[in-house]
Simulated scan of single mutants.
Amino acid sequence: MGTSWSARIVAAPEGIAAAIQSELDRVVAEMSHWAPDSDLSRFNRSTPGRWQPLPIGFAKVLAAALDVAERSGGAFDPAMGALADLWGFGPPGPRQGVPGDAEIAADRALSGRAHIEQDDRRARRHTEARLDFSGIAKGHGVDRVAEMLRSMGLRDFLIEVGGELRGEGIKPDGQPWWVDLEVPPGSRLAPMRAALHGLSVATSGDYRRSFTHAGRDYPHTIDPRTGHPLDNGVTSATVLHPSCMLADAWATALSVLGPEGMALAEREGLAVHMAVRDGTGFTEHLSPVLQAML
Rank of each mutant, 00 (worst) to 15 (best):
A17R: 12
D67L: 13
D101N: 12
L294Y: 00
D119C: 03
A64Y: 03
A265K: 03
G227N: 09
L131T: 01
E147R: 13
W87P: 13
R150E: 15
R124D: 01
A63T: 13
L110F: 02
R45S: 14
D67E: 15
P172K: 04
A253C: 14
P48A: 00
M148K: 01
G279W: 09
P55N: 11
V10A: 13
A82P: 09
P219V: 01
E30C: 06
A64H: 12
A249W: 04
V276A: 08
M192F: 11
F43E: 08
R124T: 00
A84M: 13
V145P: 08
S22C: 09
L290Q: 09
D67F: 05
A79I: 02
L181P: 01
W178G: 01
G100M: 12
V289Y: 01
Q21R: 15
A146I: 06
H241C: 09
Q175N: 12
P55K: 07
E103W: 03
G174S: 10
A35V: 12
D37M: 03
A7W: 04
L257F: 02
S287L: 06
Y207H: 13
V61L: 15
R130S: 08
G139P: 10
R155V: 04
S32T: 03
A59T: 08
H213I: 11
L181S: 06
E23G: 04
P99I: 06
K138V: 10
P48V: 00
K60F: 03
P13M: 00
R42S: 13
E266M: 05
K171Q: 15
P99V: 09
S22I: 00
Y218D: 06
D206R: 04
L181T: 02
A65G: 14
M293W: 14
V10E: 14
H241S: 10
